[in-house]
Computed example of a mutant assay.
Amino acid sequence: MEHSDTPHILAIPFPAEGHIKPMFNLAKLLSHRGHRITFVNTHHNHNRLLQFTDLPSFHTQFPDFLFASITDGIPSDDPRKGALLNYLPMLITPSARSLVAKEFRELFLRLLEKNGDRWQQPSCIIVDGLMSTIVMGVAQEFRIPVIAFRTYSATCTWVTIFMSKLAQEGAQLLRSNQGLENLLRNCDFPYPGGMRDLIVEETLAMTQASAIILNTFEQLEPSIITKLATIFPKVYSIGPIHTLCKTMITTNSNSSPHKDGRLRKEDRSCITWLDHQKAKSVLYVSFGTVVKLSHEQLMEFWHGLVNSLKTFLLVLQKDLIIQKNVPIELEIGTKERGFLVNWHLKKRFWPILLWEGF
């Protein structure tokens, strides 16, 4: 069988755009180096990803890259409208996570049965650290190595590991010593309750992985990467991954397939405006896909931005604004010194020399 010994890797991101895009880029890099990839999204994000992916062009460049999907644990008739934060509480419930783990196991068993002429059985799982419990049971049962992938810094990874161990062991230790009972409180931990519980559980499971891939590089965080090497047998700091994709993977400039893992249409209305700005003069401001602002929080920040008298590009999803009424002075100030877009443009269009700060 041709290529029968080629490794077959399952890649499973956490269902948030800031996690999907780095995992997608990592999967493309591995596919580019000859590995077979099955990229496992939730049904909802799978459909959104394919909507903005030119599949014929994509598979011409990555012929051994398959897409698969499983549930996110939320009922299929839920519209999942607006920012992720609107339905994140449903995603992280134990019942939802249990359904995700169940469907992942079913998918894995189907992939075992598909051991045909081209595709080997899965030989490795690369999983976002926040999805560790979803795959660990299957991996241990079938003795498949798991490599954890953290989409953010090594320092943040170390903090979540320390926080998780403290939540598991330290709080019990403090409560068991007279006089120290109130030294550590629930409110002292970052993240709200449900999300904190998820991070603690998933981070502790993540430490069982055979290796960890970090979206950073050695020179940036040397001491923390050394600390992580005391926990994981192998640590691969290969970031920034989007830069690796740009330098290692040659794309056809004459085609326009969307291959960066985006889940929404980009707003390029600011291109002409940016072309007329001076070098190092523009503040880039974005709240990402998860943050949900109250009207008061948004107005306070926006007033400060306008009153700074700096030129700015403000990326603000419409569905993150709870109330749509914007004071006239903000509209005027934004038109005079700034530009408002609904979603940021693709990185290849970012004129880096423009930015004064982020």
Rank of each mutant, 00 (worst) to 15 (best):
T157K: 09
V200N: 05
N252M: 02
Q120T: 03
E113A: 08
S281T: 09
L55K: 12
E336D: 12
L204V: 12
L305Q: 06
R185Q: 14
E331R: 14
V326E: 03
E221Q: 14
Q219N: 14
V235Q: 05
F142Q: 05
E331T: 08
L50Y: 03
P233W: 14
H8G: 00
A27R: 05
R185E: 11
P222M: 13
E336G: 00
P240H: 10
F39L: 10
E202N: 04
I126Q: 06
Y152W: 11
L10E: 02
I74W: 03
A16I: 14
R33P: 01
I321P: 01
I321A: 15
A139F: 11
A16T: 13
R33S: 12
D197T: 10
N215K: 03
L316T: 05
V291K: 06
A11P: 02
G338P: 10
A209L: 09
N342G: 01
E356F: 04
G137T: 14
Y191T: 01
K21E: 13
R262M: 06
K81Y: 00
V40C: 07
N307G: 00
V291F: 07
L220T: 13
L316K: 08
K165C: 10
D78T: 07
W343K: 13
I37W: 05
V138L: 11
I92N: 01
F287N: 01
H32E: 14
T247V: 11
D72C: 10
I161D: 03
T216F: 06
E221R: 15
A139Y: 07
Q178C: 06
L112W: 08
F62R: 04
K335M: 12
L204I: 14
H35I: 00
L244K: 12
S69C: 10
E2R: 10
L30E: 04
W119R: 12
D128V: 06
Q208K: 15
